[in-house]
Design a protein around this nucleic acid. Sequence first.
DNA 1: GGAACTTATAAACATATGTTATAGTTTGGA
DNA 2: TCCAAACTATAACATATGTTTATAAGTTCC
Lengths: 248, 248
Amino acid sequence: MAQAPSSNILIRKLQTISELAPSDIALLGNISIQEKEYHANEDILREGDKPTLSFVVLDGLIGSTKLTGDGKRQISSFFVPGDIPDLHGLHLSVMDSTFTPFMPTRVGFMRHDALHDICDQHPSITRVFWRSTVIDAAIYREWVTNVGRRDAYARMAHLLCELIVRLHSVGRIEDRVAHLPITQAALGDALGLSTVHVNRVLQELRRDGLISTVGSRFHATDWAGLVRAADFDSTYLHQRAAQTGADF
Amino acid sequence: MAQAPSSNILIRKLQTISELAPSDIALLGNISIQEKEYHANEDILREGDKPTLSFVVLDGLIGSTKLTGDGKRQISSFFVPGDIPDLHGLHLSVMDSTFTPFMPTRVGFMRHDALHDICDQHPSITRVFWRSTVIDAAIYREWVTNVGRRDAYARMAHLLCELIVRLHSVGRIEDRVAHLPITQAALGDALGLSTVHVNRVLQELRRDGLISTVGSRFHATDWAGLVRAADFDSTYLHQRAAQTGADF
DNA sequence: GGAACTTATAAACATATGTTATAGTTTGGA
DNA sequence: TCCAAACTATAACATATGTTTATAAGTTCC
């Protein structure tokens, strides 16, 4: 509770969703990690790949994307620092989506066999990681609802709420501003909207005083209003502390 | 390979996604199960509940649903016999969606503490269950894509392909016919469409000779055509055998 | 065996969102 | 420092899908 946030971003993220025993923290801190930098749009893993590594996002922003048969793109989730986008890959042989960074992104690779070893020997670590994948699934569920049943305006607001809360929980909101270098085309791919309509909706959100933007920096100028417009309820993020009602 | 399908539907389902050692099968077969029947629309678990049990679908059909603030419903997944819809709940304290049966449905409850015990003691069981939840997540990902980027016609075709493949893999397709007692309103809730448009699209699929229906029984009269119309690729189901190219 | 309800079909009309095209604006690399 | 490429902003127009309403066809249940 009074504990300072870990300087290890993976541990910090996991602490937002699980209470970690000191022994767990030690084990997690000892996982061997190989760092690598990617630039924007340089795919980290692709649909069809059979990875033997998972990776944690150390810095940057990543999307999980799919292409339909006629070339349209859908982003099914974003991943922020601390997240392990393809922890799922630990239990899948083939990738069913592609991980693409939206900005220069630093990741840390972890070997599957090492992760399996640590999980087999430490059920408490298994629980933490398993819970993490299950929360990813909860986020996908919410996205289905968002794309399926909310109009463009609420949909965009919802996405912004989610990203702001998630970034905030790992300390990546500075001066009440979220750095989201996601092009409007990519926002459309995440929301199932056209680029033009994304632009329209962003203007509306600005006009209504819910957000303001400077370049790719988003400021929720009226957090309560944004939450209301978004029909946003952070329960589905399953964060440990109800830090999510906070004022940004 | 030449093994006859298990008469235990849970084991049969898990065998479609993982290779089970005889010892695993024995352990799984010994999990204590409490059966219960629900009728259509009688919620099994609700958003906000804090369950201490998970359940396997023994017979019937269940949807995972959410309500938006203005009362619209979204179904984010269907569950067929053998599935454990809220295995996720093993690692979440609060339900973020509701499980609703679409027909009289028999389920088997399993205690969380019993499941935790067996997982803590048997990493191989953990892997099977964990993989199952991770495949659920892959299905949600595909649904985001389906709802976000495919038009109504392809979207409906895709849903039918998925359900037919999943039902087939657990032996619940009889005479090339899938029993899907899902009202057109509920199909709309699953696809993010209005009831009227669901009706339009179903007529089109019938007119194009891809499906025929008798009551709630769907027959894929042109499986290859349906797959093509749906842009369906079963990779995301992560089934063990490539039984999915089969002719229904 | 029919009343009461739910579900499916249908048509006419409304609208949120998509498409295409063009002109500014920003950005990042040479 | 500047240029080319990428991105954002707007407008005009197109259309897939939603809404409303009505009726027909099934179901369920007393």
